[in-house]
């Protein structure tokens, strides 16, 4: 391997690492606030990328119908819940209608807009408007009713949601993979390196998003409230910050991060309906290196995973995935060795 190849691989690795870093941050966030290990994260990546691709093809993405359907289920549950409480007449219908307002507007917008002629940036906005709200809905339907269950039960539910979403992905988008148009065709040559505009987009957007999240958590009231919930759910509740709201907000952020990651990498890699899972899992490897609790460590782990993957694909491409996923085991081992004595789980 000469220096130029090494540089090239490093460049690839950093691009991948930036995405894994974003996903790792979302996973850490979701776990620390809700104790859910967010396996369906990858589906937001895939749904984001494929919704974007469908919009670029000028067609209506099926994800809008998922949004409408999931909201309808949530509305029915709300009606049933309020019906049992006897508040159907006073607030029930109003609350249920409120749940349907936003998805109905998004559906109308998607159907009304001339999708084939939109500028790319509008398509990105529309993709986010369609896919991101699925995340808080997911929290409402799958996790909120069992918010106090053990971590393992939440984990199995997360896996079940993931499985269902992958199945839906196949129905919505078919088995074909897609790439989207790049945000920009520009490229910069630095010495022997040729950096494409999209790679710069990925790294710059990731950095901007990480910075924005850091500001959100350190300087805004909601950010601080989320951190407080992560430390002590009951304490935060007693201070008037609802854990249900915290859960929905966290899922919203995670959905945003996942969807945006999908939109960003879609021009670089071909995305299939089930690609998201492997990408999400690599985000996991990164998050676990950070012990599912530390943001900077998770970001460092992500960079490591990205570089390892890119160099492994050069040396032993057949064993690329084996190498990346086996990396997790020594890390997990080191983590568990640092805490001793028998613990209850």
């Amino acid at each position: 391997m000469d220096f130029q190849i090494a540089l090239f691989l490093a460049q690839d690795g950093i691009t991948g690492g930036a995405i894994y870093a974003l996903l790792a941050l979302a996973l850490v966030l979701v776990f620390s606030v809700t104790r859910v290990i967010f396996i369906p994260q990858g589906e937001f990546v895939a749904f984001g990328a494929l919704t974007m691709a469908t919009l670029q093809a000028g067609q209506t993405p099926a994800t809008v119908w998922l949004l409408l359907g999931a909201s309808a289920v949530a509305a029915v549950i709300e009606l049933w819940r309020q019906g049992r409480r006897g508040s159907l007449a006073t607030t029930g219908w109003r609350d249920a209608a409120k749940l349907l307002l936003y998805p109905a507007a998004v559906v109308a917008l998607t159907l009304a807009l001339p999708l084939a002629d939109l500028p790319n940036i509008v398509r990105v906005a529309l993709t986010l408007a369609i896919v991101v709200p699925l995340a808080p809905l997911m929290y409402r339907l799958a996790f909120q009713p069992i918010a106090e269950a053990p971590v393992l039960v939440l984990l199995i539910v997360a896996v079940a949601v993931h499985v269902a979403l992958v199945g839906m992905g196949l129905v919505f988008f078919g088995a074909e993979g897609t790439r989207t148009e790049a945000f920009s065709d520009a490229s910069i040559a630095i010495g022997p390196l040729d950096i494409s505009g999209q790679q710069i987009w990925v790294v710059a957007a990731s950095a901007a998003l990480i910075l924005a999240l850091w500001r959100f958590f350190s300087a805004t009231l909601y950010g601080k409230a989320l951190r407080a919930t992560a430390v002590n759910r009951n304490g935060a509740r007693l201070m008037g910050f609802s854990p249900v709201f915290a859960g929905k907000l966290t899922f919203l952020l995670a959905g945003l991060i996942g969807t945006l990651s999908g939109v960003l990498i879609a021009p670089i890699t071909t995305i299939y309906y089930d690609t998201g899972f492997l990408i999400g899992l690599k985000g996991f490897v990164a998050a676990i290196i950070g012990g599912l609790g530390s943001f900077p460590l998770a970001a460092a782990g992500a960079l490591l995973v990205g570089l390892l993957e890119s160099f492994a694909s050069f040396w032993a491409s057949a064993y690329k995935e084996v190498i990346v996923f086996t990396l997790i085991i020594p890390v997990l081992l080191w983590r568990s060795l640092t805490s001793h004595h028998v613990e209850e789980e």
Partner: peptide, 20 residues
């Protein structure tokens, strides 16, 4: 290698070696 892992680390570890 993995049974020493506590809590949720264990299922994540099983995903890792399952895939490998």
């Amino acid at each position: 290698l993995t049974l020493r892992l506590s809590g949720h680390y264990l299922p994540l570890g099983t995903i890792a070696w399952g895939i490998s």
